[in-house]
Design a protein around this nucleic acid. Structure first.
Length: 490
RNA sequence: GGCCCCUUCGUCUAGUGGUUAGGACGUUACCUUCUCAAGGUAGUAACACGGGUUCGAGUCCCGUAGGGGUCACCA
């Protein structure tokens, strides 16, 4: 049985890199019909950020990485303490009373003389009964790993390969802090062991602490799980992805209107590539659902080198998914996004007023243009509000038309429309197109110029969905309203 | 600085000794076209460098350079 886990700290929003690790861990567990666990690593009380634990759970749910069980380290406090004391009994650990200042001083002295500092406490071989006396008298203490001397170890990572290290390279690491809570090193080893984790996936930034973890396992005489240290996701400017340079929180991407499945798809291809064979020159498949990914995912297809987070390509993925949505799906997603994150309250009222049928007609028109859900607000605005009046000569699309020509076009449209007694609600877009083409011909003007002039007058924008489809949706009276502000005074 | 890792188009990558070094994003041009998109076609652009090994190296070995990670009672 394969059991994997994701072990975030509730010290901030769920990082997109953590989400990627979760994705791989999840996929591997599911592929093997195993379990995927969530473990909240909250042993650093000082760094806790309220609400982030809930956010982590919410994100895993939204992104579709459902966990089978959840645990929280502070709720397992007694377990770590018990095991730490067991290590003392085994002679693999010891109580240490050295102050941080002492250790810091020793470190500085070593560094000044150019030596590599390895901490070995003066309490390594301190008498156990005396130590207990000190503890009872209330003296603060930590429990440290008693690292054996002169030993060499080999460790094999499923992705990174073999690594070697010597025991003198590792500090007498703190296992249990003076507040009684375990350090990361003790807690992971115990938890992964007790929870039966078979594969630990985490970032390569953990590789330097592997010796500690190997030594702790040895101290307990426990077998180690398999480890896969995944390559880091880098910022385009270099270094780890950091929020100073752009969005990194899984939630922020959602707020910005990216689709979770698109983000997941993008993340899959960061460090993994599909094993599907393709012919010379033939396109490779890059669009995968989570289910397909689980099906295809193999550890051997994981890459060892780090990857730059390319936001352009992420946008492309989002666009692809958006275009593949049915109108109903798009409508649903937009509705959810808008209710949760949009600040366009006026627009929301207007959308409600016009109804779902109208919204869907509008969405149909902007469908291919939507890359982010957040862009919809802007794209559909012209169907809900009469835009601000513009100055035609400011648009280069129309610069070779004289004011008079513009005026003629607008006036004749208004005249023709007013001549018709019916409301034209039953005009399909073909009718509108025909109407405008005839009008262009009658006035001896190119259809393109007529269209652009009207486009600007009706929408105030040079880039919109096809004009006649816009006209079908707006209808005669709304069109007249929008044109009327120009006909007397251009 | 010590230890560890990485290095194919700008970016993500395919490639496991013999390839016209393939695909995707981006970008450019053209087609389509009422604008913008979408779609189509074509183009652009890479094996970090230097030594080996070999008939033959992007692929194997060794150096160099560059990049990254990490050195806490944080995870």
């Amino acid at each position: 049985m394969v059991i994997t886990r994701i072990a975030p700290s509730p010290t901030g929003s769920l990082h997109i890199g953590t989400l990627r690790t979760a994705l791989f861990s999840y996929a591997w567990a599911k592929k093997n019909k195993g379990k995927f666990l969530l473990r909240i690593e909250d042993t650093d009380q000082s760094r806790l950020v309220p609400g982030t634990e809930e956010e982590i759970e919410e994100m895993l749910k939204i992104y579709g990485l459902d966990y089978d069980e959840k645990s929280k380290q502070t709720e397992r406090k007694d377990i770590y303490k018990k095991y730490a004391e067991e290590l003392i009994q085994l002679g693999q650990a010891y109580y240490c009373f050295a102050s941080k200042e002492e250790i810091q001083e020793a470190r500085e002295i070593a560094e000044r003389s150019g030596e590599q500092f390895r901490f070995r406490s003066p309490y390594r071989d301190f008498d156990l009964d005396k130590a207990k006396e000190k503890i009872e008298s209330g003296e603060p203490f930590v429990i440290r790993l008693k690292v054996a001397e002169g030993e060499e170890f080999e460790f094999e990572d499923l992705l990174q390969g073999k690594m070697h290290f010597k025991s003198e390279e590792v500090d007498d690491t703190v296992l249990l802090k003076s507040d009684g809570l375990p350090t990361y090193h003790l807690a992971v080893v115990i938890d992964d062991h007790l929870m039966g984790i078979t594969h630990v996936m985490r970032g390569v930034d953990w590789v330097p602490s592997i010796p500690k973890h190997v030594l702790i396992h040895r101290a307990f005489n426990w077998e180690m799980p398999k480890y896969l240290h995944l390559p880091l996701v880098l910022d385009p400017e270099g270094g780890k992805l950091s929020k100073r340079k752009g969005t990194v929180a899984a939630k922020d991407f959602l707020i910005q209107g990216y689709l979770p499945e698109a983000i997941l798809n993008f993340l899959m291809l960061l460090g993994w590539s599909s094993p599907i064979k393709h012919e010379f020159g033939e396109k490779e498949r890059e669009i995968f659902s989570l289910e397909e990914f689980i099906e295809l995912f193999e550890l051997k297809d994981l890459n060892k080198s780090s990857a730059v987070f390319n936001r352009e390509k992420l946008l492309w993925f989002s666009h692809q998914y958006m275009m593949n949505f049915s109108i109903d799906e798009l409508h649903k997603r937009y509705g959810e996004w808008h209710a949760k994150y949009s600040e366009e309250k006026q627009l929301r009222l207007k959308i409600a007023e016009k109804g779902d049928k109208y919204l869907k007609e509008v969405l149909e028109l902007v469908h291919d243009r939507v890359r982010l859900l957040s862009e919809i607000d802007e794209l559909i605005r012209i169907f809900y509000f009469e835009p601000e009046k513009i100055k035609f000569n400011e648009f280069k699309q129309i610069k070779n038309l004289s004011d008079e020509q513009v005026s003629v076009i607008l006036k004749s449209v208004v005249n023709e429309l007013e001549k018709k007694s019916e409301n034209l609600d039953d005009w399909p877009h073909e009718k509108w197109e025909e109407f405008m083409r005839n009008l262009a011909e009658e006035n001896g003007l190119g259809a393109g110029k007529v269209f652009m002039t009207l486009r600007l007058a009706i929408t105030s924008s040079p880039a919109t969905p096809p004009l006649y489809e816009i006209m079908t949706i707006l209808g005669k009276s709304e069109i007249l309203t929008r044109l009327s502000k120009y006909v007397d005074n251009i």
